[in-house]
């Protein structure tokens, strides 16, 4: 059976305390020698990321979140063309929709959000956010080993 291509895309600002959670999860997964995930990361998602995810079967977007329940929330994503006001950054749903329109492919996608609590410059992440990160890492690491049993597609 052909191995599925999997991407974990963490986004946020590592200079802004708990906003770094998505990036830190990506880096932590990237350090695992037996991980099935390729890693990508950026401050925020943007249009060109539609091209990146078009090359994968399964994509997990990981980000800090203001209002999700601890330790994390993991949910399937469907394409949606919702656009925010500034549109300097795109929602993962919009990236999926763009990917489908431009490259005629929509990977199976998930959004993993971890609660963050403080957003100050250059401060370490809070202990509570660290707990959430650790829990999310354990989950993703284990979940990754089950991926070959998943059907790909929407």
């Amino acid at each position: 059976m052909k191995k599925k291509k999997c991407l974990l895309f963490g986004f946020g600002n590592i200079g802004r305390q708990d906003d770094a959670l998505g990036i830190m999860l990506a880096e932590k997964i990237g350090q695992c020698t037996n991980s099935c995930f390729d890693i990508d990361q950026n401050f925020q998602l943007n249009a060109e990321d539609a091209l990146t995810i078009s090359e994968y079967d399964i994509v997990i977007f990981a980000d800090a979140c203001v209002d999700t329940k601890a330790p994390f929330c993991f949910q399937r994503l469907k394409p949606d063309s919702e656009i925010s006001f500034s549109t300097h950054a795109m929602h993962p749903k919009s990236i999926l929709a763009l990917c489908g329109e431009l490259f005629d492919k929509i990977p199976r996608a998930y959004l993993l959000t971890m609660p963050g609590y403080e957003w100050e410059f250059n401060a370490p992440i809070t202990p509570a956010a660290q707990d959430n990160l650790d829990a999310a890492f354990t989950f993703i690491d284990q979940w990754g080993h089950t991926l070959d049993n998943l059907a790909v597609g929407l």
Binding site: F11, G12, N13, G15, R16, D18, D19, F43, Q44, D63, A64, C65, V66, D67, T68, S84, F85, S86, H88, A89, L111, T113, G116, W119
Partner: peptide
């Protein structure tokens, strides 16, 4: 304009 500096966590961008 760069209105969306620095923090982009989910739930922090609505208008």
């Amino acid at each position: 304009p760069c209105l969306s500096c620095a923090t982009h966590a989910m739930g922090k961008m609505p208008l």
